[in-house]
Amino acid sequence: MEIQSLDLREHRCPMALLMAKRACATLGQGEQIALYVLDSGTVKDIPRYLNGNGFDFEQSVVSGATVFYVTKL
Results as ranks from 00 to 15, higher is better:
36 Y>I: 02
7 D>I: 08
38 L>Y: 03
59 Q>L: 04
48 R>A: 15
56 D>E: 12
13 C>I: 00
48 R>G: 09
14 P>H: 08
53 N>D: 07
26 T>Q: 14
37 V>R: 01
59 Q>C: 09
53 N>T: 14
45 D>H: 14
51 N>V: 09
68 F>K: 10
33 I>K: 07
14 P>N: 09
73 L>A: 11
36 Y>P: 00
47 P>V: 05
47 P>H: 01
31 E>C: 10
8 L>C: 10
1 M>E: 11
3 I>P: 10
68 F>W: 00
6 L>Q: 09
70 V>N: 01
71 T>C: 13
67 V>E: 01
15 M>T: 13
25 A>Q: 09
16 A>C: 05
64 G>C: 08
62 V>M: 10
23 A>M: 15
28 G>H: 12
7 D>C: 03
17 L>Y: 06
20 A>S: 10
51 N>Y: 03
27 L>H: 10
3 I>C: 13
43 V>W: 00
41 G>S: 15
3 I>L: 11
64 G>M: 04
27 L>S: 09
2 E>H: 15
25 A>S: 13
73 L>G: 03
53 N>Q: 05
70 V>L: 02
11 H>S: 12
37 V>F: 02
2 E>F: 13
33 I>V: 11
9 R>K: 13
23 A>H: 07
24 C>W: 01
22 R>A: 13
32 Q>D: 02
14 P>Q: 02
44 K>R: 13
71 T>Y: 02
61 V>D: 10
46 I>P: 05
69 Y>G: 04
70 V>I: 04
43 V>R: 13
30 G>W: 02
54 G>K: 08
57 F>A: 03
53 N>A: 07
54 G>H: 06
51 N>P: 00
72 K>P: 03
39 D>N: 15
16 A>I: 02
63 S>F: 14
5 S>R: 12
63 S>A: 14
33 I>F: 02
38 L>T: 04
12 R>G: 04
8 L>I: 05
63 S>D: 15
59 Q>M: 11
70 V>G: 02
70 V>Q: 00
17 L>P: 13
57 F>M: 08
58 E>R: 10
14 P>E: 07
56 D>Y: 11
67 V>R: 06
13 C>E: 07
3 I>A: 12
15 M>Q: 12
50 L>D: 05
22 R>E: 14
19 M>C: 06
35 L>A: 00
60 S>H: 07
7 D>E: 04
60 S>L: 08
71 T>A: 06
64 G>S: 05
58 E>T: 08
25 A>V: 00
15 M>N: 07
6 L>Y: 03
29 Q>R: 01
17 L>R: 03
66 T>S: 05
7 D>V: 10
15 M>F: 06
28 G>Y: 08
37 V>N: 00
5 S>N: 07
65 A>D: 08
60 S>Y: 00
10 E>V: 10
15 M>R: 14
58 E>Q: 11
30 G>Y: 03
51 N>D: 14
42 T>W: 06
14 P>G: 13
14 P>T: 08
14 P>V: 08
50 L>A: 01
58 E>L: 09
38 L>V: 02
35 L>R: 01
30 G>H: 05
11 H>M: 15
40 S>G: 04
24 C>Q: 04
49 Y>V: 09
53 N>F: 05
6 L>C: 07
6 L>G: 04
70 V>T: 01
11 H>R: 14
27 L>E: 12
52 G>Q: 07
42 T>F: 02
9 R>P: 14
64 G>F: 01
59 Q>S: 12
34 A>D: 12
3 I>G: 11
41 G>E: 13
11 H>D: 11
4 Q>S: 08
